[in-house]
Structure formats: structure tokens, C-alpha cells
Computed example of a mutant assay.
Amino acid sequence: MTLATNPLIKPGRLSFDEFLACYGSDKRYELIDGEVFDLEPTGKHEEVAAFITTKACVEIDRLGLPWLVLQRGLFHPSDAGMSAFRPDIAIIDRTELSREPLWANQSILTRGTSIKFIAEVVSSNWQNDYARKLEDYAALGIQEYWILDYAGLGGIRYIGNPKKPTLSICTLVDREYDVEVLRGNQTITSLTFPDLNLTAAEILSAGQ
């Protein structure tokens, strides 16, 4: 949802500093090419994000990894200009945080090397998840990116026809994502968490 449908969003394009002043403390919004987007966190959206967060935390604890999970932390890559992403889920490498210039005072990430995994739960702004973020996260070197389209909102070119709930697992190969599209009882294969034993349906229905 953008300005046209949300009167709370200020008109015009914003710089990162302007966005931070207006929306920096509100995890509902992100900035893409100067345009403010409402992340539309419905109840089902939050259930899917929470399910993945829970599974990731269990694996991180079990394996004793120096990682943490952020939900809608602000990610402003140094070369992103007028963009500041809020991934629904980002798994962060604690050992990289000392290299993050804004982390200590503003909890803002700027480097792709700090992020091990990103997941986006699709809302009506599905073009951002399937196109813009796919390109930017790959360029930043993020090894694994999941697109969780629990309502089957994405374009036909991404999820097929007829549209169905779809999990797209994007794995970085030669700085581009190799995309595996999963539905129903198909079992996932995760580079970040190879021992996860889950199907696409379990994830997209938030374990129900």
C-alpha cells in the first residue's frame, strides 16, 4: 500500500534521512526509491512470519550459531540511496555487527554481509518482493531469500496460473538467485538451515 491508498503516508519522494525522521520508529513502513510503502501486517501475515522466526530461533539455539533474528529491522545499504528495506525476517550474523556503523545507536544495518537469510511475507505490494528486492538482495550478496506468498498474490510469471499459495526459495549462485518454487506438500531445502524438515504448506499455513 502506498500514498494513493494510505493518507498517513506523506506525499512526494523522501530521502533516507527524511524517511528516518518521519517513520524510523514505525516498523510498518519502508522506503523504496524514495517512495514510502505500508507493509500491511495483517494477522495472517504476522502468523507466517512468527512461524518462520520460531523455527529459525530453534535451529540457531540447537546449533549454537552466533546469529540473531530480527523482525522488520531497518536495512539501508550504503549504496541504496533513497531506499530503506524492512525485511519481515532477517537472520543476522552477530560477528559482523562490529562493522556496522549505525547499529550501536540506531539499530540500522547497512551491509549485506551482516545478513545470513531474509524472508518476505507477500502483501499487495508483491512486485517489490518478487522483483525489486530479489535484484537488490542478490546484488548485496545475501545467500538465501524466501518469498512467502501465503495468499497467492504474486504475478502469474512468478507463481503460475492458477495462482496458489507459493513459497519461493531463492539461493544465490554467481550473484544471481536460483529460484525454487514450492507448493503443497513439497519439502523445502534450505542452505541456511539444512536440517529443517518442513513442507511449503506447513510454512504457508503457519503450522496449522
Rank of each mutant, 00 (worst) to 15 (best):
D93R: 15
N128F: 01
T171I: 15
T95Q: 11
A119K: 03
G112W: 00
L97K: 03
L97W: 03
W146V: 08
I115G: 06
K116R: 15
G112K: 04
A151D: 15
L172H: 10
E135G: 00
G81E: 14
E135V: 14
R94V: 13
Y177A: 09
T110C: 11
G184K: 13
S114F: 00
T171D: 09
I159A: 12
L140Q: 13
Y150V: 02
D93Y: 04
R183N: 13
Q71D: 11
L74S: 10
I115H: 03
A84Y: 04
N105V: 06
A119R: 01
A84K: 06
S98F: 03
Q143N: 06
F117G: 00
T95R: 13
D149E: 11
S124Y: 04
F51V: 07
G81M: 05
Q143M: 04
V69Q: 07
D129E: 09
P165N: 09
L102D: 13
Y145L: 07
N105G: 15
V179C: 11
E120L: 03
L167C: 06
I118E: 01
K133R: 13
Y145E: 09
P165L: 08
T171W: 00
D79N: 13
T113I: 01
R86Q: 04
I92D: 01
I118L: 02
Y177R: 09
E120N: 10
G155E: 07
D61C: 00
D129F: 05
R157V: 09
V173L: 11
E100L: 05
W103D: 11
L97H: 05
R99S: 12
G152F: 09
S124D: 08
